[in-house]
């Protein structure tokens, strides 16, 4: 029996244990809520994590399609990127999977073939972590973009209305640029 088959059989128990490990990163009261409230609209964080790890696990055992896995990772990391976690804490949940799997295999004597498979799988999990860092950074950069855009929109509109800036369109190059005309305040 291959490692992936073994893990497939133990899927429910492994996912439950992975979910619990992630919930442990939250305060006790919060973890209880995240675990017990099953309505996806009343508990979007808990349900996003629950669904996300299930999808990641499934994809890992099947094709390991990077694009698909990225989407699943995004659904969890986008949340943790704005919660009170450092970067390492936000993405650490990927590594939990390694110990969850090792613990889950404790009662099975691993043959050299299984060891090889396990090493490959763990290496795949490591690459997930690398993708996770990218996603985390994208989320944080998005936040800074949003902050900057809010500021830009607010001030630009005011300047425009005060006739302090004029937007000139360059039809040929299809680019816009802002020309700031100094205006004599007292003229």
């Amino acid at each position: 029996m291959s490692l992936k088959n073994i893990l497939s059989e133990k899927k429910d128990e492994l996912l439950a244990s992975w979910f619990d490990r992630i919930l442990d990163t939250y305060p006790v009261e919060t973890a209880k809520f995240l675990k017990n409230q099953k309505d996806r609209f009343a508990n979007p964080v808990g349900q996003a994590i629950h669904k996300g790890i299930g999808d990641i696990f499934q994809e890992l055992l099947q094709n390991g399609d990077i694009e698909k896995v990225s989407g699943f990772l995004d659904s969890i990391i986008r949340v943790r990127a704005v919660q009170e976690f450092s970067a390492s804490q936000a993405v650490a949940f990927i590594f939990f999977l390694k110990s969850v799997i090792r613990d889950g295999l404790a009662d099975i004597s691993l043959t050299p073939e299984l060891y090889d498979e396990l090493a490959t799988l763990e290496s795949q999990i490591d690459s997930l972590a690398l993708i996770a860092f990218d996603i985390f950074m994208q989320c944080r950069e998005k936040l800074y973009d949003i902050k900057a855009n809010e500021m830009k929109n607010m001030t630009y509109r005011l300047l425009q209305r005060a006739n302090m800036v004029t937007e000139i369109k360059d039809a040929e190059k299809e680019t816009n640029f802002i020309a700031i005309h100094k205006k004599e305040v007292n003229s």
Binding site: P27, T30, F33, P44, Q83, E84
Partner: peptide, 12 residues
């Protein structure tokens, strides 16, 4: 568990 800040942030 009805506050959006608790639901989204998790601070008790």
């Amino acid at each position: 568990d009805k506050c959006h800040f608790f639901i989204g942030g998790g601070d008790p």
